Amino acid sequence: MQLTIKTLAQALALAFVATGAAQAEEIIKIGHVAATSGAIAHLGKDNENGARMAVDELNAKGVVIGGKKYKIVLQAEDDAADPKQGTAAAQKLVDARVNGVIGHETSGTTIPASRIYHDAGIPQISPSATNPQYTRQRYNTAFRNIANDEQLGSALARYAMQNVKAKRIAVIDDRTAYGKGLADEFIKNIKHGGAATGTTVVSTQFTNDKATDFSAILTAIKATKPDMVFFGGMDAVAGPMLRQMKQLAIPIKFMGGDGMCSDSVPRLAGDAMSDGQVICAEAGGVEPSQEKGMADFRVAYQKKYGIGVQTYAPYTYDALMTMVEAMQKAGSPDPARYLPALAGITHKGVTGNITFDARGDVKDGVLTIFTFRNGKREKVTVMK
């Protein structure tokens, strides 16, 4: 069948439109890694949800970088909070040629994965890994947008000594990079400032992040007559530990970091947790002038997912937004081109202004102290 000039022109026009549409929307792949299976899957999914919120908002608005339109695609991987799975997930993202990575969730997976991203030249922002070792490696691709354990351990120690006025503190950690790192920083600060307040560490014990029986270490702790237990670990262990503390008649203050500061703690502890007994801190928080932005985010999150924010979804959201803004400032999603822009970025996020120091740590990181009353998490104060 012979084509007329008119039909040929129409066919060429359609081909041109199709080609233009294909060229009009290029893809940026951003990896996200967290523990979306295992004991802390609820926290990992919270992180992933925050990243997905950012991706959906960006795509709805339209992303233009260097005059080109892009679609952001999130490649989400599960590392189950296991270092071996963490490095496997990292290599998978490198092989997929992602433009950047948000994560990992835990310090134990973030630290070994960071070398793989560095060797591939892929920028990485962790919204929740707090162990100082992550940025002490001096990888120019490694960033975090929350305070680290040096700041967290120091703030918790000051609060324990000055506000709670604890005198005899027992310390337990779960031997993970996160839990041990936080406990070590806490102990260091108690030893440094305890002479002035009469505060001492009377017992140091350890468990693991999958343990369920703490009777032996709690019995040993009880014999030292502490007035506070400090725990470096996650909520999945903290909840059962609180139950066994009640069974052994150890009704004392229980303090820890962000890993045990989720809304899941009351459920995991059951009726073992009394009002005001648990004191925890998140490596993050907002000043009063920024509270509306955070509140609006929480409302939007609840509307989108039908559940409340667990812990770090706002920081994951901000991390991805920060990365894309760096691409826009550089005029390219190519990692080598936008990495310098990321290092010098100032991003106004829902968690505050995000800018990084020479190591990749967030500048002027703040921390929020919480307690629990009537089964609900309650903000006590914001500290630096």
Rank of each mutant, 00 (worst) to 15 (best):
K6W: 06
L8S: 14
L8P: 02
F16G: 14
V17D: 06
A22S: 15
Q23A: 11
Q23V: 03
Q23K: 06
Q23F: 00
I27M: 04
I30Y: 00
G31P: 13
S37N: 05
A41H: 09
G44Y: 04
K45V: 14
K45I: 11
G50M: 00
R52Q: 15
R52D: 14
M53H: 07
A54R: 09
D56W: 02
E57K: 12
N59K: 07
N59S: 01
K61E: 14
I65P: 00
I65T: 10
G67T: 09
K71H: 04
V73W: 01
E77R: 12
Q85S: 14
G86F: 10
T87F: 01
T87Q: 06
A88H: 10
A89D: 12
K92D: 13
A96G: 12
N99W: 00
G100H: 02
G100P: 06
V101C: 03
I102D: 00
S107G: 12
S107V: 11
I111T: 13
P112D: 08
A113F: 09
S114A: 14
D119Q: 14
I122R: 05
I122A: 10
Y134Q: 05
Q137Y: 05
R138W: 01
Y139K: 12
N140P: 13
F143P: 15
R144K: 14
I146Q: 04
D149S: 06
Q151Y: 01
L152V: 05
G153I: 14
L156M: 11
R158P: 00
Y159F: 14
Y159L: 12
N163I: 11
R168A: 02
R168L: 01
I169T: 03
D174K: 11
G179T: 09
L182Q: 03
N189V: 10
K191I: 09
H192W: 01
G193S: 02
A195V: 12
T197L: 08
S203Y: 06
D209H: 07
F214D: 15
F214M: 13
I217S: 01
V229I: 10
F231M: 05
A238G: 04
Q247C: 10
I250D: 01
K253H: 12
F254S: 11
S264A: 15
P266Y: 04
P266L: 11
P266D: 09
A269R: 05
A269T: 13
G270K: 09
Q277L: 12
Q277K: 11
C280A: 11
G284F: 02
P288I: 12
K292G: 02
G293E: 08
V299D: 08
Y301R: 08
G308T: 14
Q310I: 13
T311Y: 01
Y312P: 00
L320P: 04
T322M: 00
T322I: 00
V324M: 09
A330R: 01
S332C: 05
P333K: 09
L339I: 15
G352Q: 07
D357R: 03
A358G: 07
R359P: 01
R359T: 11
D361P: 10
G365R: 01
V366H: 03
T368C: 02
T368K: 04
F370K: 03
F370C: 06
T371K: 08
T381Q: 04
K384C: 04
